[in-house]
Design a protein around this nucleic acid. Structure first.
Length: 920
RNA sequence: AGAACCGUAGCUCAGGGGUAGAGCACUACCUUGACACGGUAGGGGUCAGGGGUUCAAAUCCCCUCGGUUCUACCA
């Protein structure tokens, strides 16, 4: 990366409004084409954040825009603060989502993946990836992220594929990855298994049916039914053909005598045993249930405990099988149609005793929205408990900090209850599992010493007819490696891995805490022996204006590109950071974007003001001192490095030509620099932008610029330098948040090197000036009072009013009369004849002649109210100070503060009483 | 069934033991040589309700009422 750019041609004046469309493309292109390349050999401390890789399919949505804004803000801050900052970009192949998208396209084109064949299909997906991935890249570029594009990665690129294989081989030979027959979640639409996390639970209205199962011995009876029957409850009557038992609780007196006996499945002649198992809840339903091991996870476990067979009656398409277990009339029926048919038949046969409304939580495939079907299948699994234990240990030791902290508990709870992870997917798009089978079903997996060697070409197995597992890994089985696979792992000696791993912060939404964060934690500890990041910063979800989640199906999504077009990217970044507080969800609010746009415009015009005034004043500057050169560089744009604003500030401190306003703003800038830096260090990005926003607008623009006008008009070098230095510091402080406009304006102020590579302002205790702060506060109070009086007297802002200043701090105001007169548009006079309208403020009283259209009764009422308020405050403070407990226990500063308040309010009260005395 | 978060001005939200804040909206005045995407002066809140801890509670604890969400194999 070079650190120069083509400066904006110096026009006499910037336009009066900031136009993002002329500024943004230039900088976005620069940051894309000359990326912020992190140097693995530098001596600086690393600061690494890996992007939560967006799915190659689909667009950047607001969640991504939020993620990447927060990441970029931290990265830009740390880069300026002297770290070797690496923002590592990339994308995820998103197995099932992408395959579903491409298959849908094929369907629209009248074909399908099976007709195409695996290789042709994959070619299509890669085409789509190229197109879609390019779009995401453009969107991130538009956002202005300072990513290191030379390190961009993709979960299916060569290096990452090697990492995935290394992971699997290691887990397999360590006995942690295994193949087994389990009940898994099947998505009949996409024809693959899913992990628990890929299923959305949704409560739907359904029915619960009470069925009568006839006992083998008609002389017996369950106490929940008539003679010769036992009643059971189910919500899935279509699965009764796969029943293997009826279960009751072992302590349930109603059924004890029946355990070991048999009952007949309705609509069939098949008998199943009645068994006792703790899993049964006595109080629920009718106390007994059917056990269908092949079609229900709980039943599967019960079946395992009791050694029951587990035949299946639903096939992979979600239809009843043509198995002999299923009566002919139901064979081949779709599962929901089958339910209706079975219910009807049960009803007709008198076996259906009752059906009542029942809310059932059903599992929907996250991607296809189709109800998942529990099926029994042979799949690959990874044992999670050993990994979870390592993470829990690391969390315990504080090796990973979560912010907000409350998520640490959520993180732990999930890890403590973790189950084995089904990692195989019956998809084509993804990392094909490197496992081979011989004709007898024996498993072959490459050796850890030579993981890249496929078993079917391994000389040792040449005599065998090996067939590769057609399945691929779950997408998250590659995303879990992201913080280190992107840095060269499994090559742990690589420069990048050595320098940038482990990473510092992970920024993402709390919604993927389990999916992604926890799995990276486990992979990090399990494969690299350390935490993959030291801080997890979780932000809330970006919701629509009504507070609902945005989703394609609801059609309530907001396209970030439209917001960029409408408000400008800086304004959007302002809004994102301003809105992000403490991991709370964010409800979309257009007003925040307007606020950002207005703020950008304010900054633009403040700089415009500075350029105009400095431009007017510079020709008269003839000195050859550092400070003069610093101010002159605004127009002269030196080829070498410009004199630094930090040095200028340090020099300014000792100058005698500084005005009170200059001293005040320098002191305030210093305090704000410290505050914003501390907030960023604590990852409280929202607080930092708020601090900077109010300082820039309320203090710098509203007070300092106004107060500096008289001194600028008389060409005061100290004020010119202060204006420039403070403005440049503000631009630096805001740069991480609003990179475009700050880069542009910094260039306009005479800098050739882009602001992004300048250093972050540092707090300097020597710049603190309590006296100036105190005095300027009095001046502000005087100005506010004078303005208020003008308003009360019905005067226009431009009408000049004679006012007199009295009070403890009248001297300070008098010394700065030019400033007060200029800002408040008043004339300061020493004495006023006759009755006056007066306003009493802290330290000063402002008096104005009583003329014009003031409503005296109303005015006096207000002043009386004011007096009462002061009285109340004084009494309150006195009350506290006369309270023994307060004096004994409150900290000294608080006590002093109360004493000070009594003094200040007392003085104000005295002055106000004097003022009111003239009106009797 | 557990758990978490939220309830502060008309709206959207900060603040999180020590004098109630912002943006927008509202009222009045102002095109004052940076900015009307602006300026100035104003109005508006018993910080959901109740109890407790404390010298001091919007802030900490408990309960209640509303709202949201996440976990969980109740047929």
């Amino acid at each position: 990366m070079t650190d120069t750019h083509t400066p904006t041609p110096q026009t006499p004046e910037l336009p009066t409004q900031f136009d993002p469309t002329t500024t943004e493309p230039k900088w976005a292109a620069k940051w894309r084409n000359e990326p912020f390349r992190a140097d693995a050999t530098s001596g600086k401390d690393p600061f690494t954040i890996v992007i939560p890789p967006p799915n190659v399919t689909g667009n950047l949505h607001l969640g991504h825009a939020l993620d990447n804004t927060l990441i970029d803000t931290l990265i830009r801050y740390k880069r300026m603060a002297g770290f070797e900052a690496l923002y590592l970009p990339g994308m995820d192949h998103a197995g099932i989502s992408t395959q579903v998208v491409v298959e849908r396209q094929l369907k629209d084109a009248g074909t399908n993946r099976h007709d195409l064949g695996r290789e042709n299909f994959l070619e299509k997906v890669w085409d789509w990836k190229a197109k879609s991935g390019g779009m995401i890249l453009d969107q991130l570029t538009r956002l202005g992220v300072s990513a290191d594009w030379t390190r961009e990665r993709f979960t299916m690129d060569e290096g990452l594929s090697r990492a995935v294989r290394a992971q699997f081989v290691k887990l397999y030979h360590g006995g942690l990855a295994y193949r087994g027959e389990r009940i898994v979640n099947w998505d009949p639409a996409s024809q693959t298994t899913l992990s628990e996390l890929e299923i959305d639970r949704e409560v739907r209205k359904g029915k619960m049916y009470t069925l009568s199962y006839k006992l083998e011995n008609p002389a017996e009876a369950a106490s929940n039914g008539d003679a010769g029957e036992i009643r059971i409850a189910t919500v899935r009557p279509e699965t009764i053909f796969a029943d293997q038992a009826i279960a009751v609780h072992p302590n349930d007196e109603r059924f004890k005598h029946l355990v070991g006996k048999k009952a007949r499945i309705p609509l069939t002649e098949r008998l199943v045993p009645i068994i006792a198992d703790e899993a049964v809840e006595m109080d629920f339903g009718v106390g007994a249930l059917k056990i269908t091991p092949a079609h229900d996870p709980t039943d599967f476990e019960v079946g395992e405990r009791h050694g029951l067979p587990r035949p299946s009656v639903i096939d992979l398409d979600g239809n009843l099988t043509t198995d002999e277990l299923v009566p002919a009339e139901f064979q081949g029926l779709e599962r929901f149609a089958a339910r209706k048919a079975v219910v009807k038949a049960l009803e007709e046969g008198g076996d259906l005793l009752e059906q009542k409304d029942h809310d059932t939580a059903i599992g929907l495939s996250e991607r296809t929205k189709v109800p998942v079907e529990p099926i029994i299948s042979e799949q690959w699994f990874v044992q999670m408990k050993p990994f979870a234990a390592q993470v829990l240990d690391g969390l315990e030791k504080g090796e990973i900090r979560l912010t907000p902290e409350r998520y640490a508990k959520v993180n732990r709870d999930w890890l403590e209850n973790i189950r084995d992870w089904n990692i195989s997917r019956q998809l084509w798009w993804g990392h094909q599992i490197p496992a081979w089978y011989d004709e007898e079903g024996n498993i072959y997996v490459p050796d850890p010493e030579n993981p890249e060697l496929d078993c079917d070409v391994d000389p040792r197995y040449r005599h065998l007819n090996l067939r590769r597992d057609p399945d691929v890994f779950d997408t998250w089985f590659s995303s879990n490696l992201w913080p280190f696979s992107t840095l060269g792992w499994p090559d742990t000696d690589s420069e990048d891995f050595q320098k940038f791993y482990p990473t510092q912060v992970l920024v993402t939404g709390y919604d993927i805490l389990f999916f992604w964060v926890a799995r990276m934690q486990m992979a990090g500890y399990g494969l690299t022996g350390q935490a993959p990041f030291s801080t997890v910063m979780l932000h809330g979800l970006y919701l629509d204006a009504k507070g609902q989640k945005m989703s394609k199906s609801k059609g309530n999504g907001i396209d970030p590109l439209e917001l960029f077009d409408q408000y400008g990217v800086d304004a959007c970044r302002f809004a994102f950071t301003f809105l992000s507080t403490g991991g709370q969800d964010i409800k979309h609010d257009a007003r925040r974007f307007e606020q950002g746009r207005n703020f950008a415009n304010k900054l633009w015009n403040a700089t415009r003001f500075a350029l105009m005034r400095l431009g007017e004043g510079i020709p008269a500057l003839t000195g050859d001192d550092d400070l003069t050169r610093y101010v002159r560089s605004t127009l002269e744009k030196p080829d070498g490095a410009s004199p630094r604003s930090r040095d200028a500030l340090a020099q300014l401190k000792t100058r005698s030509d500084l005005t009170l306003a200059d001293r005040w703003i320098i002191s305030r800038l210093n305090a704000v620099t410290a505050e914003a830096s501390a907030q960023l260090d604590a990852f409280d990005i929202g607080a930092a932008i708020r601090t900077l926003y109010s300082f820039t607008w309320d203090e710098f623009c509203d007070w300092y610029i106004e107060a500096a006008k008289p001194a600028l008009s008389s060409g005061n070098l100290g004020t010119m330098a202060t204006l420039k230095a403070v403005l440049e510091h503000i631009l630096k402080l805001l740069h991480p948040f609003m990179p475009f406009i700050t880069s542009e304006l910094y260039g306009a102020l005479g800098h050739r090197r882009q602001i992004a590579v300048h250093s972050w302002p540092k707090e300097d205790a020597a710049l603190h000036d309590a006296e100036a702060t105190h005095a300027f506060d009095a001046l502000r109070a005087a100005v506010a009072a004078a303005r208020s009086l003008k308003s009360e007297l019905g005067l226009s802002p431009q009408d000049r009013l004679n006012v007199a200043v009295e009070g403890e701090l009248a001297g300070v105001v008098g010394e700065n009369s030019r400033v007060v007169e200029s800002i408040a548009k008043v004339n300061l006079v020493t004495l006023l004849e006759g009755r006056t309208l007066s306003l009493v403020e802290q330290g000063v009283t402002i008096r104005a002649p009583l003329e014009g259209t003031v409503d005296m009764a109303d005015w006096l009422k207000k002043q009386q109210k004011r007096l009462q308020e002061l009285d109340k405050q004084i009494k309150q403070a006195e009350g506290k100070l006369s309270n023994e407990g307060f004096v004994a226990r409150a900290p000294a500063e608080v006590i002093e503060e109360e004493q000070r308040r009594i003094k200040d309010f007392g003085a104000q009260k005295e002055r106000l009483e004097g003022v009111l005395a003239q009106f009797g």
